[in-house]
Design a protein around this nucleic acid. Structure first.
Lengths: 148, 148
DNA sequence: CGGGATCCGTGGTGATACTG
DNA sequence: CAGTATCACCACGGATCCCG
């Protein structure tokens, strides 16, 4: 990965460009999340980000409307949910189906790729959940040791 | 989960308390990341957060020293890496071994629980990586459709 | 109902410098 | 080498209002 490409990508903080990917996308692209310039970095953040992960996980239950999703992902604001969903839609992980009836009806669902990622996320979350007793005691121990 | 407990937890933004978990931790705790008050929420953020996820993933390669880790996780600042590692250590997912030689030597490694989570993260990352061509074209399509 | 637009606080984040 | 401390800043994220 040459330095010029590096510089271009690092300059754009949130809205990333990948000029070299324009046109045909060959499979011999080296994609490494551990490299800060790789386009996969922001996608990983969309997927594992605070609300993105929960939105994906919730959608694994099946298609859902906006406010329905909002209730599932407890604590998320309208703004952040809309923002996260847009990012996921842009990444081709979430589908947005608008029915222009009145009142407006918008259904969100997972694309095949999104469904796989959601599954892996839920797998991680499930393990995390079962590990919570261990984790909580670890936190207590740590906090007691670091008093002051 | 009663409301009083709910309120206490919601007030603390980042440094969370779980008074009801003090003492013995029974297994019949309902732990649901989708509930904003659940102690697993902040842990999930530690694990899937911007730098936490990459740190865990890097440590799956084996124990590593601080600056070694810093080179692996390209783009992370000292501050954020230290911060992320502390959170993971507090959660009992990362072990910190200090050798008080000179120069100072600190080795980070994964605990058993951390290793499992790291594995699941790497699994997700691997799939994400292979999906990048699809995702990139999806992004292009989206961007072209939303011109203006 | 599902957002977009706007305003605004605060805290997450990085740069720099300093300590053990 | 492995952090901590301080500072300054911008973006995240919430609240509110408004539109289709």
């Amino acid at each position: 990965m040459d330095t010029a490409y590096h510089e271009i990508l690092q300059r754009s903080s949130n809205w990333y460009l990948f000029p070299t990917y324009t046109g045909q996308v060959s499979e011999d692209i080296e994609c490494d999340v551990f490299s800060s310039a790789c386009p996969s970095r922001p996608v990983l953040e969309d997927v594992t980000g605070r609300w993105g992960a929960l939105a994906l996980g919730a959608l694994a239950d099946g298609p859902m409307r906006f406010n329905e999703l909002r209730r599932h992902v407890d604590g998320v604001s309208q703004k952040m949910l809309a923002q996260s969903l847009q990012a996921l839609e842009r990444d081709g992980l979430v589908l947005r189906d608008v029915q222009s009836t009145f009142p407006l009806k918008v259904e969100y669902s997972l694309t095949p790729t999104g469904a796989v990622l959601a599954g892996k996320l839920l797998d991680l979350i499930a393990y995390l959940t079962t590990s919570m007793p261990t984790i909580l005691t670890a936190q207590q121990t740590y906090d007691e040791a670091h008093t002051g």
